[in-house]
Every structure is written in structure tokens, then in C-alpha cells.
Nucleic acid binder design. Structure first.
Length: 624
DNA sequence: ATGGGTTAAC
């Protein structure tokens, strides 16, 4: 084949865009019996060029032999000697209809050894060939590799290749399914989600094997909206959900505090003939424990009873969840009861059980109980882990026992454990919150020698410490130092600095900091606005405070109880009880329930003015 | 060939 033939072929293609031609109608080579989609892609042009100069080609039997015998150095030499384009060689493999294993081997070799990146079209032709040969595990691992290295290929172009490279539709489904799986497995959730959506558009059928990991990722990344959408699409697409699919969804909804929806899904699953199991109930109980509201532990306990009535036996994890709930509720009596109940049921407390309970005791100031529980764990053959010690250090620090807290570092090492960044952060935070800045900085300096890098929390604690002492210049210096360690200040960092400036009656300066954080793309949160408002209120600049509230609402954050309390306090302190009262009324109109702080603030002011409170909720209505 | 539930710090 010479260049004249090539040119005539190229001209034919230009005048027949989109037409598929058989190369062998133009070329007389016996093995080029494939069709070529038009217009040509860059890779095809290369292929064509090498086809057109037959001299430059290594013939397929030779290629096959070299690859199957893994004579790679010779293959490399042949390719170089022939001047052939390695990318085009893959096409020859696929065209020749030889064993797809060999094409796969060549693909991997040329990728790893020659650094070749094959066009999508060939990549998915190879996937199709493997699927045709029913080599499904190979398709799976091939796509897994593809997903790991592919960077910048859009889901759209990938689907185009899958559907246009000539393979069957059934295999298309299998390939797409494994693609979704590969994305999910490699943490590329967004790509997986897009592939899921597009699979629906193309009509490819997916399986739970791929959808479950995708749902799991969406749940763990807090993308409940997408998670629910996937669920609905799966139902619509008649993908048969199993107990894990439902549990993943329920757990995701519970974590997003959507308990009612989670309950609905439990009914859905029963309707689908799938029975809830211990995992289902554990997720629900945990959801109740971690939800707000005064009755949360009551609901959690009711769910446990419901579970037992349904003849599902609670396991260690069930009791751990419930016990931790009571610990967080500062109800250690109930927590200990659960601890005993689980043992009565023949279940052995595990590491998590002890860690939770130790944490509970630490937080309720019963350090000695916490310490003796660690001893109990050791004697029952359980080895404490770093969480155990972090919890204890936190407990010591909160109770002013710095010596004991620091000694734990030695205990950790003696136990063969390694302190982590949390360990150091707890220690540093304990110091900074009790005026021991120098100590905190010493610990900070010692982190490097232990091979632990400070994180944002480390810096936030240190900055808090400096601000407490009014050392704003040093705090700002540290703020700058964070960037040198490639750590970005977060909302909390800004809130600390803003709060500190406000305390120094420099609210204007604090306001500029708020502007700056917005400018760099950080979204202020409720605390940010409330802190600044409080600052303006303290300075008696109520107009500015009200303006901040407007700004906050413009940013889509609604005033909550804390916000109202700040403003009410501000007005009260200025003796403007009428304004305070109208804010209180606004709260009530919005259906918000003022808390004790709200009333305490107003009561203080009213008593000052000689009012006598009664028990009625509207007792503070001074305009009346 | 696959997936679900529990513990630590600002």
C-alpha cells in the first residue's frame, strides 16, 4: 500500500462522513478484515498509516507468538525495528480475532513498559472481547485498572466507546456494571454515580453487586439525596435489592437524621420480601441515639424492644450502640445497666464497649471508674487500643490532671501502641484551655520527633490558646504558618480569630476577617455570624448586629435560638426591652421554642427593672 | 463477585 492509496481512502472518508468501511476493501492484507468507524479518530489514522505501509508492520502470528511466550525484549526490538506504531498493534490484535488474553497482555505490557495510553475505543473493544470470551474476572480487573489510571476521560466518552465499539448489548451491560463497581471501589463516587445515571439512559442493566458499593459510598459521603435517587432508580429499573442494599440505604438515612424516611424504607423492604436483620435494627437504634430531641433514648430503647419482639437477637454491637447513647446522654446509670444486661445475655463486652463506657465515665467526671475499667479490660484479656488511651487522656485533661494525662504517653509506648494526631491534639487542647500555652507548644514541637504531623485541629487549639492570652499577633503568625504546612484554615480557625477580635472590642476588624473568609471561598457558619453579632452587641452597635443577621439570612442561614439569644442579650444590655420582647415574639411566631438561656437573659434584665415574673410563658411581655 | 451496623479531639 502506498501513500496514493492512503490519500484516496482519506478522501473517500471525507466525502462519506459517518460511514463504516471495511479496511480490507481498500487494502489487500489478508488479516485486516475489520470495519472502521468514520470519521477517523487520531488513533485510527495512526493505525491506517501503519496499515498503508505494510513494510512497517509486524505480522500478527509473530506478534501473537512473541506476546504469548512473553518475549518482550524481542517484541520491543521488532516494534522499533519495523517502525510500527505500538498503539496500532493493539488494533491488529483485536482485528485478528486472536485470544483476547494476548491482547490484554499486550495492552498491559505496552501500558506499563512503553507508557502507552490506548484510545478509549480500543480499551473497550478489548473489554468487549474479554466479555465475549466470558472471562468476567478479567474484565473486572481490567476495568479496575482502567478506572485507577484513567484521568480526564468523561463518562460520556466512555459510554460512547462502550456502545460504539461493536460488542453486544448484553456484554455492554456487564461492562458498564463492572465500570460502576470499579469507580465505587476506587473511591470515585461521583464518576460512579454519573455512570449509574448514564446506564439508565442507555438502558444498560446493572446489578446489586455494583449498586451496593455505590450506595455505600454515597451514604458515607453524606450524599443522601443522590443515595435516595439511586434507590428509586433501582426500584424503577427492577434491580432486585437485597438486605445489604436496604441496610445501606437505612444507615445512610439514619446518619442524615432522616429517621422517618428510614422507618419507611424498613416497611418498603418488608414489602419487597426482604426481612430486616440485626444490622437493620442496629442502624435504626444508632440513628435514634444520635438524633436530637429529649425522647431519643426512649425511642432507641423502644426500637430495641421492637427488635426483640420481631425475634431478632441483639448482638454486641446493638448493646454498644445503646450503651454509647446513654453515655452521650450523660446517663451513666442507664449505660451501666446496658453493660450488665449485655453480659446477662451471654454477650462479651469488646474493645468498643469498654472504650465507650470509659469515655462516658470520663465525661461525667468519674475518672477513677474509667481507670478501673481499663484495668478490668486488661484482666479480661482485652488489649486497650489508642482510642482507649485518647479517651483517658481527654478525661484527665478535663479534670485538670495534666500530670496523669502526660504520663499516658509513656503508658501508650509501653503497651506497644503509637500515639496519633488525635492523642497530641487532645493533650494540646487540654493545655491551651487551661492557660498552659508553653506546655502546649512543647508538645506541638515534640510531635515531629514522633513522626506525627499537626493538622488543622492542632493549629486551632494553639490559636485558641494564644487568643485567650490576647496574643493576637502570635495567633496571626501561627495562622500564616499553617499555610506553610499546606494546611488550610477552616471555618473554626476563622471563628476563633473573629471571636477573639470581638472580645477585644474590635468587631470591625473581625468583620473584615469574615469578608476575607468569604473571599477565599469558605462559607461562614452560624457560629461565625453569632460571634460577630455578639461582638457588635457588646460594643453597643446594635445596628451593625442587626445588619449581620440580615447578611446571614441573605446567605441562606436562618436565625436559630442561639442567634436570637445573642440579639436579645444585646438589646437587653442596652435596656431596650421592647426590642428584646419583639425578638422573643418573633421566635414564638416562627414556632421556635426559646430555651433556658433565652429566659435567663430576659429575666435578669426584668428583675433589674423591678418586674415580678410569673410562671406564664408570656410573662416577659413588657408591652402588655 | 459484592455489600450493611458501634468508640476518641476543635
Amino acid at each position: 500500500m502506498n501513500s496514493i492509496t492512503f490519500n484516496s481512502l482519506a478522501r473517500f472518508m471525507r466525502f462519506h462522513p459517518g460511514k463504516v468501511v471495511r479496511i480490507d476493501s481498500f487494502l489487500s492484507l489478508p488479516w485486516t478484515t475489520t470495519t472502521l468507524p468514520l470519521p477517523l479518530f487520531a488513533g485510527d489514522k495512526l493505525a491506517l498509516r501503519s496499515l498503508c505501509s505494510s513494510r512497517s508492520l509486524v505480522d500478527v502470528p509473530t506478534l501473537t507468538e512473541l506476546v504469548s511466550k512473553q518475549h518482550y525484549s524481542e517484541l520491543k526490538a521488532r516494534l522499533r525495528g519495523s517502525g510500527s506504531v505500538p498503539a496500532a498493534v493493539l488494533r491488529q490484535f483485536l482485528d485478528s480475532g486472536s485470544d483476547p488474553d494476548l491482547a490484554l497482555r499486550y495492552f498491559r505490557w505496552s501500558r506499563d513498559e512503553l507508557g502507552l495510553s490506548h484510545p478509549l475505543e480500543l480499551t473497550f473493544r478489548l473489554a468487549h472481547s474479554l466479555a465475549d470470551a466470558k472471562k468476567y474476572p478479567k474484565v473486572r480487573s481490567f476495568l479496575d485498572e482502567f478506572v485507577r489510571v484513567s484521568d480526564g476521560d468523561t463518562v460520556s466518552s466512555i459510554f460512547h466507546s462502550i456502545s460504539n465499539c461493536g460488542g453486544g448489548f448484553c456484554n455492554g451491560s456487564i461492562i458498564v456494571d463492572m465500570l460502576v463497581w470499579a469507580y465505587a471501589k476506587n473511591g470515585k463516587t461521583q464518576m460512579g454515580f454519573e455512570a449509574f445515571k448514564r446506564a439508565g439512559d442507555y438502558g444498560y442493566k446493572l446489578s446489586v453487586v455494583s449498586c451496593n458499593p455505590l450506595m455505600s459510598n454515597l451514604a458515607n459521603e453524606g450524599a443522601v439525596g443522590d443515595l435516595e435517587w439511586v434507590y428509586k432508580e433501582m426500584i424503577r429499573g427492577r434491580i432486585k435489592l437485597n438486605v445489604v442494599s436496604f441496610n445501606t440505604l437505612i444507615s445512610g438515612l439514619c446518619k442524615a437524621r432522616k429517621l422517618n424516611k428510614a422507618r419507611d424504607v424498613v416497611e418498603d423492604m418488608k414489602a419487597c420480601g426482604v426481612s430486616p436483620n440485626v444490622v437493620t435494627y442496629n442502624a435504626l437504634i444508632d440513628g435514634h441515639c444520635k438524633s436530637g430531641g429529649l425522647t431519643r433514648m426512649y425511642k432507641a430503647d423502644a426500637t430495641l424492644k421492637e427488635m426483640i419482639e420481631s425475634k431478632i437477637r441483639p448482638n454486641e454491637i446493638t448493646y454498644n450502640i445503646l450503651m454509647d447513647g446513654y453515655c452521650k446522654d450523660e446517663n451513666m446509670v442507664a449505660a451501666v445497666k446496658v453493660f450488665e444486661e449485655m453480659q446477662r445475655q451471654g454477650l462479651k463486652p469488646n474493645l468498643v464497649t469498654y472504650n465507650s463506657l470509659i469515655n462516658g465515665h470520663c465525661n461525667s467526671g468519674e475518672i477513677s471508674k474509667a481507670v478501673s475499667l481499663r484495668d478490668q479490660m486488661l484482666s479480661s484479656g482485652l488489649k486497650p487500643n489508642i482510642i482507649t488511651y485518647n479517651v483517658l487522656i481527654h478525661g484527665f485533661g478535663k479534670n485538670g490532671m495534666f500530670k496523669e494525662a502526660k504520663e499516658m504517653l509513656d503508658v501508650i509506648e509501653k503497651e506497644g501502641l503509637v500515639p496519633n494526631v488525635v492523642t497530641f491534639n487532645i493533650l494540646i487542647d487540654a493545655c491551651c484551655n487551661s492557660g498552659k500555652n508553653e506546655e502546649a507548644f512543647l508538645i506541638h514541637a515534640s510531635m515531629a520527633s514522633k513522626g506525627v504531623l499537626p493538622d488543622i485541629l492542632t493549629y486551632n487549639s494553639l490559636i485558641t490558646g494564644l487568643c485567650r492570652e490576647g496574643k493576637m499577633d502570635k495567633a496571626e503568625k501561627l495562622f500564616g504558618e499553617m499555610k506553610d504546612n499546606s494546611l488550610k484554615p477552616n471555618v473554626v480557625t476563622y471563628n476563633i480569630l473573629i471571636g477573639s477580635l470581638c472580645k477585644k472590642r474590635e468587631s470591625r476588624k473581625a468583620h473584615r476577617l469574615l469578608d476575607r473568609m468569604v473571599k477565599i471561598g469558605l462559607s461562614p457558619n452560624h457560629v461565625t455570624y453569632d460571634t460577630l453579632m455578639d461582638g457588635y452587641c457588646t460594643e453597643g452597635n446594635l445596628r451593625a448586629a442587626v445588619k449581620v443577621r440580615e447578611l446571614m439570612q441573605k446567605e441562606g442561614l436562618r436565625a436559630n435560638i442561639a442567634t436570637f439569644n445573642v440579639l436579645i442579650k444585646g438589646f437587653c444590655k442596652q435596656g431596650k426591652l421592647e426590642n428584646a420582647n419583639s425578638l422573643l415574639n418573633e421566635m414564638l411566631e416562627r414556632g421556635m421554642v426559646p430555651n433556658r438561656t433565652t429566659y435567663d437573659i430576659i429575666r435578669e434584665e426584668m428583675l433589674d427593672k423591678g418586674f415580678v415574673p410569673d410562671i406564664d410563658g408570656h410573662m416577659y411581655n413588657v408591652s402588655g
